[in-house]
Amino acid sequence: MPAEVVRVIPQKTRSTVLMVPALAWLTALMVVPCGLILALAFFRRGIYGGIEYTFTLENFALLLDPLYAGIFLTSARIAGLATLIAVVVGYAAAYAIAAAPRNRQPILLFFAILPFWSNYLIRTYAWIVLLNREGLITQGLRLLGYEGEPPSMLYTEGAVIVGLVYNYLPFVILACYAPLSRLNPELAEASSDLGASAFTTFRRVILPMTIPGIAAGAVFVFVLSIGNFITPALLGGGRFQMIGNLVYAQFLTANDWPFGAALSMALIAIMLGLLTLQAMVAEKTAGETREQSDG
């Protein structure tokens, strides 16, 4: 009898019912707080750190102040470099995994994402152990006979980039592996048969067909990097402030919640813009990937 009852509930009603818990969760913990933060950005900071409920656009105007605009640009540069390196390294790794024998691929993927199973903070601290002036790298150089000043690697922009690349590389590998493993190997053979060199085949056949994976991985790394505040705080030593650090400071030390909210909204806007771009790339190539599965 209950089975019959289930059957008469229309498909549409059933999927709506099933989505309710997730939607409720997202609304309560994501949409509502984001709306509150957005609202906050239009108010004025109180004299003693509180919030004065009068409408203003000056928080957004402040974003254009050279000091803050400069931090945005620095963050974009660091995130951009981290993205570039992560995409090049990650794509190469994904390519190698996809080219490995089928039965070995799961274990290789497992190793690629292994670091992910440990805590973000611990992974970042591990880089301090490696990079500090008397750290493992310096000691290794000494074993090889190096006697000069220890290289200063920690608390540099390079260290921040290395930390970001390291943390987000698994995402890029997974995102690029998916389209690479689906690629029909006969397409590369056909290209070679038609006279193309290995490089031309890569540039004109393999790369264009795996762009959606690259775009997904790149947007992921960039968005997470530009808003990151742990890695710049630990590996940049507080000397390199990124937007994430700035937001953190506005809410927790400067007590300027309205400006912190405006900064957050700017970050969210960048993120939404990039995700839209990525969705468009994915949409454009979707039909082509469908054709591939028809064989």
């Binding site: 029909n184 006279g195 004109r204 054709e291």
Partner: peptide
Amino acid sequence: NRRPVNLMFQSYALFPHMTVAGNIAYGLEV
């Protein structure tokens, strides 16, 4: 890629991201 021999694949192996004309021109372009 250096043989004056061409193969028509059983699966056709057409490049899905290129048009018909693009597919046909590919071998001459490279």
